[in-house]
C-alpha cells in the first residue's frame, strides 16, 4: 500500500468554461444548486436539476466516470438514508408489513428521491472541487465570507489555515509513508491482528507523526513571521478575483433556476 498513490485535492486542471468561472461564482452557484435540490419535489423539478447537473458536467469536460467515482465512498450513507426513509415514512398505502416494519408507497417514493438528491448533491459539490484549484477555492471563500469580519469571525485566519492545511497534506502523507517503512523495517506489523492490536500498532506511526507536525508548525510560524506576516490587516493579494460577463450570466441563470424550481416544487411538481 503506497499512500503516495492517493490523489488528493481532486482538482482536474483544465481550461473549460466551468474552470474559467470565478471561484466565488461557482461557490454561490453550488449553494443555489443545493437549495434548489431541497426545494425540488417531484419528477419535473428533479428533471430540471438533473439537466443542470448534466449540463455543468458536460461543459466542465470532467470525465463522467470520475464524477461517479466520487460517489463510492458515500454509498454507505446513501443506502442508510434510503433504508431509514423506506421504513420510517408513515403513509396510507401500505405495501408490505413485517414485524415492526411497514413499507408504504410514500416511503418508497421518498427513499427514491432521497437517494437521487444525495447523489446529485455530492456530484454537484465534487464538480466544484474538480474544476477549482484549492487555492482559488480558499480565496473565493475568504472573499465571500469577508463581510463576516464585521461580526468578528476570523475569516482571514480560517482561510489561511485552510490553505496551509492543503499545502501540508502531501508533505505529511509522504512523511507517513516514510515512518511506516521505517517501523516496518523494525518489524512493526500494520496489516494483521484484531482491531485493538491494529490500533496499538498505529502508535509507533502516530507519535512521530504528531511530533513532526508540531515541529513543522513551529518552524513554519517562525518562517512566516520572518516574511512579515502579521495577520490579514493591510494584506494585498497577487491574484485579484474579478467577476466577468460569464459570471454574471451564470449567477443569473442559477438564481432563476432556483426560483423556478422553488415555485414548481411548491406546487408539488
Amino acid at each position: 500500500m503506497a499512500l503516495k498513490d492517493i490523489t488528493l485535492g481532486q482538482y482536474f486542471p483544465g481550461n473549460s468554461p466551468v474552470h474559467r468561472l470565478d471561484p466565488r461564482t461557482k461557490l454561490i452557484c453550488v449553494v443555489l444548486y443545493i437549495v434548489a435540490l431541497f426545494l425540488a419535489a417531484w419528477f419535473v423539478t428533479y428533471a430540471v436539476m438533473l439537466a443542470v447537473l448534466a449540463g455543468s458536467i458536460y461543459l466542465s469536460k470532467v470525465p463522467v466516470k470520475s464524477v461517479f467515482r466520487g460517489l463510492k465512498p458515500v454509498l454507505f450513507i446513501v443506502v442508510f438514508t434510503a433504508v431509514l426513509n423506506l421504513f420510517y415514512t408513515p403513509g396510507d398505502t401500505v405495501l408490505a408489513q413485517f414485524w415492526v416494519f411497514t413499507i408504504t408507497l410514500e416511503g418508497v417514493w421518498r427513499a427514491f428521491f432521497m437517494v437521487v438528491r444525495i447523489m446529485m448533491l455530492i456530484s454537484g459539490t465534487f464538480l466544484l472541487t474538480y474544476t477549482t484549484s484549492p487555492i482559488l477555492l480558499t480565496d473565493g471563500l475568504e472573499s465571500l465570507l469577508g463581510p463576516l469580519k464585521m461580526v468578528r469571525v476570523p475569516v482571514h485566519e480560517l482561510a489561511m489555515m485552510m490553505s496551509i492545511a492543503l499545502r501540508f497534506i502531501p508533505t505529511l502523507i509522504e512523511e507517513t509513508d516514510k515512518i511506516m517503512s521505517a517501523q516496518r523495517a523494525r518489524g512493526a506489523d500494520f496489516e494483521s491482528g484484531n482491531l485493538i492490536q491494529r490500533a496499538k500498532a498505529l502508535l509507533p506511526l502516530l507519535v512521530p507523526l504528531f511530533i513532526s507536525a508540531f515541529r513543522r508548525a513551529d518552524e513554519l510560524a517562525t518562517a512566516m513571521e520572518c516574511r512579515c506576516y502579521h495577520g490579514g490587516e493591510g494584506r494585498t493579494r497577487l491574484r485579484q478575483l474579478k467577476y466577468k460577463a460569464a459570471d454574471y450570466v451564470t449567477l443569473f441563470l442559477f438564481l432563476a433556476i432556483t426560483v423556478g424550481v422553488g415555485v414548481l416544487g411548491h406546487f408539488g411538481l
Binding site: I135, R167, R216, R237, L238
Partner: peptide, 24 residues
C-alpha cells in the same frame, strides 16, 4: 519544507509582498 506556505510556487513567493501590502 517548513518555510513554504502556499501550494503553488508563485503564490508562495508572493507571500511576503502580500503581507507588506504591496499593490498587486
Amino acid at each position: 519544507d517548513n518555510q513554504i506556505v502556499a501550494n503553488v510556487v508563485e503564490e508562495d513567493v508572493a507571500f511576503a509582498p502580500e503581507n507588506l501590502g504591496v499593490p498587486p
